[in-house]
């Protein structure tokens, strides 16, 4: 019987991680850092996290625990905390963490992840005695995974965090939750917009189309006009809507990777030679400041 260990610090993310783990193993054991018992796991080792302590401060003792229990397959989520936890746990176990966007087969374990900004996909076999995987949300398993729920036994585990980092405060991010992945129509905005207020032009079109608004990375991380959850691409969200309308986006490969699954791609760009046009079903050469208002009128 194969066993997968998952590193959990949040119930919802933990449940998603169990699903990925079930695709790779028969039994799932969760190490829960301050998140309580996980109903979907067969066994949860619960660890109390002291206030003011980061979950990552438990990396070394968690690695020791995994080694002691003979874990050979460990999964963490590909979010900020999951990455740090997985990287440090892997280092303490003497292996490199493995980035997983997709799973080709479970045994021997073969996984895929993008490289060169999405120009390539690397397929690799994990050959180390312990696999510490950093699993992208929804990384599909080798087969459709049945919704098994575990026997959910619980064991308390007393681990001592490493001293050093002090959590002074946590500020919840304000603003709406977005779920681009489930949107059927998406309007994406890029650096072709000169000012934040101009995004209203795209919002008006999105409203007419019943579409969600998304953006390229510089709009979210460069100028901060939109929250990071709304940027699409190799390091952001992957979407598969029926329609993707890219406005003022040049079409760099890092961005395009995120919309490869779109049924129809339409682009508006004033540069006739913009790379996006080679990846669009319909390309409109024009100034977005003129085309968008005219489009709202025509829709």
């Amino acid at each position: 019987m194969t066993e997968a260990w998952i590193l959990v610090y949040d119930q919802e993310a933990g449940t998603a991680l169990t699903r990925s783990a079930r695709a790779l193993a028969d039994r799932v054991v969760a190490v829960s850092l301050g998140a309580g018992a996980l109903a979907t796991a067969d066994l949860t080792l619960t660890v109390d996290v002291a206030p003011g302590t980061l979950v990552e401060a438990y990396a070394r003792p968690v690695a020791a625990l995994l080694a002691e229990r003979g874990a050979t397959l460990v999964l963490a989520g590909a979010d900020v905390r999951g990455r740090l936890l997985a990287g440090q746990v892997a280092a303490h176990l003497g292996v490199s963490p493995v980035d997983v966007a997709g799973v080709v087969q479970a045994s021997p374990l073969v996984v895929t992840h993008p490289a060169y900004g999405g120009v390539a996909v690397v397929t690799e076999e994990v050959t180390a005695p312990v696999a510490v995987l950093v699993v992208a949300a929804g990384a599909p398993g080798p087969a459709a995974t049945p919704p098994v729920s575990g026997s959910s036994a619980v064991e308390a585990s007393a681990l001592e965090p490493e001293p050093g980092l002090v959590l002074v405060e946590t500020r919840a991010k304000s603003g709406e939750q977005v779920n681009l992945a489930s949107a059927t129509r998406v309007v994406g905005v890029g650096r072709g917009f000169g000012a934040e207020a101009d995004l209203d032009l795209a919002r008006a079109v999105a409203a007419k189309l019943g579409a969600e608004l998304a953006c390229s990375r510089p709009i979210a991380e460069g100028v901060g006009w939109m929250p990071a959850e709304r940027y699409v691409g190799v390091s952001g969200a992957t979407i598969a809507p029926d329609l993707y309308l890219a406005v003022g986006i040049s079409g760099q490969v890092q961005h395009l990777v995120g919309v490869r699954g779109a049924k129809v791609v339409v682009a508006i760009n004033k540069d006739k030679n913009a790379p996006i046009f080679a990846h669009a079903d319909l390309g409109v050469v024009g100034d977005l400041y003129e085309v968008l208002p005219a489009l709202v009128a025509a829709l």
Binding site: V119, A120, V121, T123, V126, A131, F277, A278, A280, V285
Partner: peptide, 19 residues
């Protein structure tokens, strides 16, 4: 930790490319 099996460009979707 791993052995590389392949490094390949992903399959491209054929788009209409009407301008």
């Amino acid at each position: 930790t791993t052995r590389t099996v392949s490094v390949l460009a992903p399959e491209q979707k054929d788009r209409g490319r009407v301008l």
